[in-house]
């Protein structure tokens, strides 16, 4: 059974992410009164980009090519550290939560360095914003992880994330609600969604993530888009453990339940993107400070 779960875990991690982007786009189209692109359009896009050639700027060095690859490798490894649904993570050890958070740091280091490698001012702006906003979202993430560690009494992500399911009591309800709000904001910021960043914007001056990848093309761009969707899946799965701590205890029911939940989360993100406008760039730190405060208060409430 563990082997089956392992295979399913890897399959979901590798195959599902682009579908989430499809669901988000479809939801936004539905809100806008359009038919929208097919649900599987992100897969077609990735396949098309993989067949295309690359244009490499003469300014760039090997860092430019390494950026997307390191990003993809780190988010996939992070995906192996978290449990999906009620099933244990393939890799679990004491203190893996720190590796989980720092893998995103490694990805950020190389994404932003690859952006600076082009020497373009737009990409400089994008990477400056990315690293700046991370300074607030990272402590928020750690506060949330500390709440989960305290609830479950463990420092292993598998046990910690299943804490809300297994060790739920009335005392931990309020902290969990607070950190789920904080984690949702962190999710939106880290995956560059409205209200922090607009993935569909067309003005380089106002972009974060899209500004950093202006010069990537062909297979490298497809790796970047794919890695971004995997990141959405990974962080979304973490959030699901907090906001939807249900399981049936049966393998053939729990996997479909997870699929419904994660696609539902994608739809929620689509709704948020449809009903909100993007914040002004100088207001984003306030939103993230809010997330930090939510998670911090959650922790204080728990240890009072």
């Amino acid at each position: 059974m563990t082997i089956v779960n392992l295979i399913l875990h890897v399959a979901v991690l590798l195959l599902l992410p682009p579908l989430l982007l499809g669901v988000i786009t479809k939801t936004k189209a539905w809100f806008g009164g359009r038919v929208g692109a097919p649900l599987l359009q992100p897969y077609y896009d990735l396949a098309k980009l993989l067949r295309r050639g690359m244009v490499l700027s003469t300014t760039t060095t090997w860092v430019f090519r390494a950026g997307p690859i390191i990003t993809l490798a780190t988010v996939l490894l992070a995906g192996l550290l978290i449990p999906i649904g009620g099933f244990n993570a393939p890799i679990a050890f004491t203190g893996d939560l720190i590796l989980f958070a720092y893998l995103f740091g490694l990805a950020r280091f190389f994404t932003t360095s690859a952006a600076l490698d082009t020497g373009s001012a737009f990409e400089g702006m994008g990477s400056a914003r990315e690293v700046t906003f991370a300074c607030l979202s990272e402590p928020a993430l750690f506060f949330a992880l500390m709440v989960l560690a305290k609830v479950s009494g463990s420092l292993t992500l598998t046990t910690m994330l299943q804490g809300p399911t297994n060790a739920f009591s009335a005392d931990v309800a309020a902290p969990l609600v607070l950190i789920s709000i904080g984690l949702f904001i962190v999710l939106l910021a880290e995956t560059c969604r409205i209200p922090v960043d607009d993935p569909n914007t067309h003005l380089e001056l106002t972009m974060i993530h899209e500004a950093m990848v202006l010069d990537h093309s062909g297979p490298l761009l497809s790796v970047i888009l794919y890695a971004a969707s995997v990141k959405l899946l990974v962080l979304g799965t973490v959030l699901l453990h907090v906001i939807a701590p249900f399981e049936f205890g049966k393998v053939w029911l729990d996997w479909p339940l997870y699929l419904v939940e994660i696609l539902g989360l994608a739809a929620i993100i689509g709704i948020v993107e449809s009903v909100m406008a993007r914040l002004q760039m100088r207001h984003v730190p306030y939103l993230l400070t809010g997330a930090l405060l939510f998670c911090g208060f959650g922790f204080i409430l728990l240890i009072r």
Partner: peptide, 10 residues
């Protein structure tokens, strides 16, 4: 896999 070289998009 190496392909065309060009200037940075400006």
């Amino acid at each position: 896999l190496a392909s065309r070289a060009g200037p940075t998009w400006d």
